[in-house]
């Protein structure tokens, strides 16, 4: 295959995949929602879960975006330093976003700041947003695509605590964000927390945290304990679907962390709504691919 053909093929695959994930939820989210539904006794909560299930069924059958807010498109790339299209990836993903916008169709959600004009293509300055990780001595690429809707992006918050505030301060921060701003973000939420050294490093990690599977745990024992405690604690508050009260509040709490300056604790929260539209796809060097997030998906 010549290079132009490879670029075209990968663009095509990514456009189709981006459009696909706006219509069907990933397996982990789907399973969790089905599980949470069984715990509800509040009639309003039950009614909402029924609507959610009916909606996903209709979206699949009619091949339409399940939520009208198809978000700003973000790609999280983990590419081998020897991936053959490494230098072309940015252009590929930009064109894939435009392709998905026509295919979905996706709502036009890229507004140029300061000019305050909607570009109408879902692409703009630095949009789609790309986050890079380069893996030495590897020739494949794994790409997470995420649709960052407005409602679920709004609760996002980052701050830097003093060490004296400790992980107790982290607990305060998380509860405050979720019980105030999280209520309007279409719960049950997937809560991502970054614990790190500064505001922007924590913010990036908090976003990576919601890309991790629902039900997975941080490898560090204390971090995993904190995930479990926060998840149980937030569920005990009983926010329920759409904030109408219920047996649970969240699909899960995922924490990602880095080392930090001894004088600071950077902490951030990102939230994914119940319609947590993300997908993971892995390319080999020959551009054959495997879809990890949606079993049995055919593009």
């Amino acid at each position: 295959m010549n290079k132009d053909q490879s670029i075209q093929d990968m663009t095509d695959t990514m456009a189709k995949f981006t459009s696909y994930i706006g219509k069907r939820l990933p397996n982990d989210v789907k399973d969790k929602l089905a599980e949470l539904r069984t715990f509800e006794t509040n009639p309003l909560a039950k009614a909402v879960y029924t609507s959610m299930a009916d909606n996903q069924e209709a979206a699949d059958k009619l091949d339409r975006p399940s939520c009208q807010d198809t978000g700003v498109i973000q790609y999280f790339i983990k590419a081998g330093a020897r991936f053959p299209l490494l230098g072309e990836l940015e252009e590929i993903l930009r064109n894939a976003t435009q392709g998905a916008t026509r295919m979905g169709p996706l709502r036009h959600n890229a507004v140029e700041t300061f000019d305050e004009k909607n570009t109408g293509t879902n692409t703009g300055t630095n949009i789609p947003w790309l986050d890079w990780e380069i893996v030495p001595d590897d020739d494949g690429a794994t790409i997470d695509v995420y649709m960052a809707g407005g409602g679920c992006t709004l609760p996002g918050k980052a701050t830097v605590l003093m060490p004296g505030e400790g992980y107790e301060g982290v607990t305060d921060f998380v509860f405050d964000v979720i019980t105030s701003r999280g209520v309007n973000a279409c719960p049950p939420l997937l809560v991502g927390i970054g614990v790190s050294t500064s505001a922007e490093t924590a913010a990036r990690l908090s976003k990576r945290a919601i890309l991790r599977e629902v039900g997975s745990r941080n490898a560090n024992e204390n971090a995993a304990l904190m995930e479990k405690l926060l998840e149980e604690g937030l569920n005990e508050v009983g926010i329920g679907p759409q904030g109408l009260t219920g047996a649970n509040s969240v699909m899960g709490v995922n924490i990602e962390a880095s080392a930090r300056h001894p004088s600071t604790i950077g902490v951030a929260v990102s939230t994914g709504c119940w319609a947590h539209r993300r997908g993971k796809i892995r390319f080999k060097a020959d551009l054959s691919y495997e879809i990890i997030s949606h079993k049995g998906a055919v593009l």
Binding site: E168, F175, V183, N222
Partner: peptide
């Protein structure tokens, strides 16, 4: 929610004194 959360947070905080 606000009324419920205080005791829940206190319980968690007593278990995350990692520093």
């Amino acid at each position: 929610f606000n009324e419920k959360k205080k005791p829940i947070m206190d319980k968690i905080k007593s278990q995350v004194r990692f520093i």
